[in-house]
């Protein structure tokens, strides 16, 4: 039997903005080697393979692959792709579909400490992905209708720019050492070299 048209992963994606050229991939690998992620962060990261998986309607595998979640839409590959495929748009589309299907991002995104956040909105301004909104929130132990930053886990790419601007140290990435640890590490190094030099 011919199966229902439009239900394939590829059909769902191709209608999304930026995904029009999805079928044109040569599998040349330019995107993979242009992207810093596989080399530096995650060896399993491979947008070329994801495009192939989409072509073969490997829905489950695409949604559980790490690739759509790690892409941060820097578009270095877009400018290098010989077929002008907007790869980050495709990856983002897969991510959206996966979220709709109930998968969640494995990224350690930013987290707000509602007890200290003053709702100044600096982070909202600097976030390159518009993942932060300042909203009226009820915070236990603190009060009602306070302005507190909120992170959209589906948009946050864990770059940390927000934590560098926060004046009350209330927003921090979940996986990385937080500011205090970084500073501690720095001090302890400085002390040891300093001591070594004095001896």
């Amino acid at each position: 039997m011919e199966h229902e048209k439009g239900s394939d992963l590829r059909d769902l994606l191709i209608v999304l903005p930026g995904c029009e050229k999805l079928d044109m991939c040569f599998s040349c690998g330019t995107c993979v080697s242009r992207c810093p992620i596989q080399q530096k962060i995650e060896p399993a990261y491979n947008p070329r393979r994801l495009l192939k998986m989409i072509a073969l309607n490997m829905q489950q595998e695409s949604f559980t692959s790490i690739t759509p979640y790690l892409c941060s839409a820097c578009d270095l590959c877009y400018s290098a792709c010989p077929q002008e495929i907007h790869i980050s748009a495709v990856l983002n589309g897969v991510k959206k579909l996966a979220m709709q299907a109930g998968f969640s991002t494995p990224l350690k995104t930013a987290r707000v400490d509602a007890l200290t956040c003053v709702g100044c909105g600096f982070c909202e301004k600097v976030c390159p992905y518009q993942a932060i909104t300042v909203k009226e929130t009820n915070v236990p132990l603190r009060g009602k209708n306070l302005l507190i930053a909120e992170v959209d886990g589906a948009k946050c790419m864990a770059c940390g720019t927000c934590s560098s601007i926060c004046r009350s140290n209330s927003i921090e990435l979940q996986d990385r050492e937080n500011s205090e640890e970084v500073v501690q590490d720095l001090w302890s190094w400085l002390e040891t070299v300093e001591m070594g030099a004095e001896k």
Binding site: G29, S33, N46, R48
Partner: peptide
């Protein structure tokens, strides 16, 4: 020369 060896799926 930076490229992905597409057979291996690895950057070379």
């Amino acid at each position: 020369v930076h490229s992905e060896d597409v057979v291996l799926g690895k950057i070379s």
